[in-house]
Amino acid sequence: MTLSELEERSQPNLDSAGAALMRELVTHLAQHRTALREEWVDRITDAHLLGAMTREEIFAEATSVYDTYVEALETRTLEALEAYAQNLSERIIPRGVETHEVVGIVLLLRDVLARSLFAKYHGDTSILNRVFDVYEPAANSIAITVAVGFVRERERVIREQQEAIRELSTPVLQVRERLLILPMIGLLDPHRARQLMEQLLRAIRANRAKVVVLDITGVAVMDASVANHMILTVDSARLLGARVIVTGLSPEIAQTLVNIGVDLSKMNTVGDLQGGIEEAERLLGYKVVPTAEPPPAAMAL
């Protein structure tokens, strides 16, 4: 079942007797707010949930959750609760609160309230049954709403972080004037390969690069589609007026390139990154001279 399908399960409509009973329950839960809330916070602490938060914080949060919970039972609408769950998730996710903790505390509240109702009505089984008939479905949809809200917020945060990591993981580095290095690391999918390609071409123009060293030592595997993107990158860079040197091709990737029939005459490859940089410097007209021996002028002193 998808998240939205879960969420769309609306609370069952109550007949007038059910509605009256629900009002009675809500009154009971509101009257015993202080005691029930205390009990809930104790149960949370005993279960070692919300370890990232202090007891005061848990108590403050518990008060809001309790009131919103009872309000949701009373109004039989989930909008306010949804908004609260979203807001709560935004606050606690950065603190490292996990999904099982959020689900855990909502189920604990459901349990604490159920026990209180049981204590009140256990003398009359038929009323007790009707009480749970109206309470359980409402409590379940509240639990689902909070859990779904949390998971959704978490997924959003994860997506954002993934995007940020992607941006960070492939910097285009300028090592010398006119020379860029693009060290590619990790898994590349076609979407990512396309992004990288665009990023590199823009960097070439922005830095007026003449030579680019594309180091793929950190890329373990490359499927045909990603390999094709790499070839397209080499060709596009040439159209812009820059040469691309590819370094660090693993045996597996060399095999892939041969299998897809790459025109190797168009590829300038050098075994390792150091060799690639040396080749790039040669293309740029640099000459690297060792300075191990002191210059003659210094000898004379």
Partner: peptide, 21 residues
Amino acid sequence: PDVALAMVQMGLVLEGVTTTL
């Protein structure tokens, strides 16, 4: 850059012609 990308994807690589920035 965007034009170069479209060209290579079309198979138009201007072989034998020098290009500069």
